[in-house]
Computed example of a mutant assay.
Amino acid sequence: MPCPILGSPTQASSKMSTKSELQALLRFLSQDAKVPLPIAMGKVKELQKADLTSPETLAKSDLGTVQAIFPDDKLAKQVLNAAKRVTKKRTLGDANPVSPAKRKKTSFTEESLSPAVVEDTLALPEVKVDEDELRSTVLHTNRAPLVLAFAVTLLKYTMPFQPLSSRLSLAQAVVSVNSRAKAVSLGMEKGKSAEDDGWGQGQPKIRIMGRDIRVMKRWGYEWKGKAEKPEIKTEDVQPGDSQDTLKQENQAGDEPALWGLDLEALRSSNGPLVSGAQGAHASGLPIYNAQSARAYLLKAFASPTLSTEESSLNKKSPANLKAEKERNLALLLQALDLLYSSWAYVLGREELDKRAWAWYVAVRPDVEHGVAGWGGKGEVELNQILDLRRNG
C-alpha cells in the first residue's frame, strides 16, 4: 500500500526527525539535566525556537541564552552543565551514566534549616479580593502548572496535617506521573513506568487526583503548629483500604510528613530503594523537590497576551512581570480555596479527591490535540472555577 503523501521527501524526513529530536530532548532534560518533566514539557517549544534542540547545541550556547528560557538561575546552570557533561562524554565515547553520587546533589535537603524556616521559605503568595475581581481574572498558562495548583490546594483539605513542603512535593509527583502517562499516550515515551517496573516496592502508596503516588515518611521532621488545618468532613476508615494507616494517622493529627518519591529518577540512577529510609539525604532517594515546585508555580501564570500595539505601549519590566505572575497565582489559589472549601463540609476526603480531577478537566486551557499541543498554553478563566462551587 502506498504511503500517504506528506509533501516532499525532505518534509517527511523533517517531520520524523522533529519527533525523534523532541523525544531525545525531553529525555535529556528530564534524565540528564534533572528538570522536572512538566517544566521540561513547557520549555520544548522555546528551545526549538532558539534552535537549542540537543545537548550539543545547548553546550555551545552561553548561560544568558539558557537563562532566557529557564529563568531560574539554578535550573539554567543545571541544564547548561548537563549539556556540557553529556557532550563531553559523547566526544570521548564514554557511555557511562551519571553516577548516583552526583545525582544525589539534586535532592532537597533540610539539614541546614529548621523546619519552621523551611516552611516559611516555601510560603505561597496570598491575596484576598472580592468575587467580582476574581471572576474578571483570566490567566495564560499551560496545563501542568494548573494541575500542580489544583493538587497542592486539594491537599490542604484531604491531608491537612501535612506541611506545605510535603504538599508541594506530593503535588509535583501527581504532575509528573500524569505527564509521563500523557507522554506515553502520545508515543513520546515508551516502555513501562518505573512504578510498573517495580521500583516503588516497599514504600507506602497514596492516591491523589486519581494517581497512585509512592511516598517516603520524613521521620523526625517536627513542624507541628505550622500546618494548615481546615475543617473538613471526616470518614470512617474502611477495612482493606490501601490508605488505612495513613488516614488513621492523618485524622489523629500525628501523621509523619511525607515526600513524594521520584521513581523515574531512581530508575535512571539505578539506585537502591531501601524500605523505611529516614530521609532523602540519608538514603539518597530522589524526591520531588518542594522548592522547584514552588518556583514553577510562581512563574507559570501570566496574564493574557496583549496585541503587538498594546504590548509596545504597556511594556512591563521583568520585576513587574514577576510581581504580576505571583499575584495571578495568588488569585488562582484563592479561587481554588473557595471551590474546595464549599465542598469540604459535605464530602469525605476520598470523594473530594475523586472530584478534583474532573474539576481540573472542566477548566483547563484548550490546546491542540496530540504532540502539537504538548506544552501548549491557553486561557484559564477563574469564573469557571468559581462556578464549580457547591450552591447553598
Rank of each mutant, 00 (worst) to 15 (best):
A144R: 07
P160E: 13
F161R: 14
S165N: 11
R167G: 01
S166V: 12
V174C: 13
R167Y: 07
L164M: 09
P145Y: 05
F161L: 06
Q162F: 05
A171P: 07
Y157D: 10
S169C: 11
A151R: 00
F150Q: 05
F161W: 13
L170W: 06
F150N: 01
S166M: 11
T158M: 06
L170G: 12
F161C: 10
L148R: 00
T153G: 04
P163F: 03
T158A: 09
T153P: 03
Y157V: 08
L155D: 00
S166D: 12
L164R: 12
L155C: 05
Q162R: 12
L146A: 01
S166L: 11
P160F: 03
V174Y: 01
A144W: 10
Q162M: 14
P145A: 06
F161N: 15
P145K: 05
V147Q: 10
R167V: 00
Q162L: 15
L170V: 15
V174H: 02
S165I: 02
L146D: 01
K156I: 01
L148S: 07
R167W: 01
L170N: 11
Q172R: 10
L168H: 07
V147H: 12
S166T: 13
Q172E: 15
S166P: 09
S169T: 14
R167I: 02
S165R: 04
A151I: 07
S169E: 11
T158W: 01
T158F: 03
A149T: 01
V152S: 12
Y157K: 07
V152L: 14
A173Q: 14
V152K: 12
V174R: 04
S169D: 05
P163D: 11
L168P: 03
A171D: 03
L155S: 02
L155M: 14
Y157A: 08
P163Q: 10
P160W: 09
L168N: 06
M159V: 11
T158K: 04
A151K: 03
L146Q: 01
P145N: 04
P160Y: 09
A151W: 02
K156S: 12
V147Y: 08
P145L: 05
T158G: 08
L170F: 09
M159I: 09
P163A: 14
A149Q: 00
S169W: 04
L168G: 08
F161G: 15
V174N: 05
L164S: 09
L170C: 13
A151T: 10
L155K: 03
A173H: 14
A171F: 00
S165Y: 00
R167F: 03
Q172V: 08
L154S: 05
P145I: 05
L148A: 11
L146T: 01
L168W: 02
F161T: 14
P163C: 09
L148T: 07
Q172W: 07
